[in-house]
């Protein structure tokens, strides 16, 4: 059984505010699910093998790390979806 402390710690890492009721429910649900994962302990050991990505040409190809110019209207739409903004900037609360 996962402890209440552990649930709180994971929620903090995941940046999720959970109510006391949610923490209790999460503790119960996660415990059942994590117990089910114990099944994997029965699985045979494996040696690393070639992955799918190395078998198909062009799979997982990378591009140069460079900015791709976008149309002004796309930029405007993306900024518009931020809840808080000023001019072309997305506004955030103070760090502390």
């Amino acid at each position: 059984m996962i402890s209440e402390q552990e649930v709180k710690h994971i929620a903090k890492l995941a940046r999720l505010e959970l109510s006391e009721v949610e923490i209790k429910k999460m503790q119960k649900d996660l415990s059942v699910i994590l117990d089910y994962f114990d099944l994997l302990k029965k699985s045979p050991k494996v040696r690393p093998i070639i992955t799918q990505s190395s078998l198909i040409k062009g799979y997982g190809a990378t591009r140069k790390d460079e900015a791709i110019p976008q149309k002004r209207e796309v930029v405007e739409k993306i900024i518009a979806s931020a809840p808080d903004k000023k001019d072309d900037y997305i506004k955030v609360k103070a760090i502390f």
Binding site: I10, L13, L16, I33, L34
Partner: peptide
């Protein structure tokens, strides 16, 4: 939230 918790764990 449950899945984010499982994944984070």
């Amino acid at each position: 939230k449950r899945r984010i918790m499982i994944g984070t764990y």
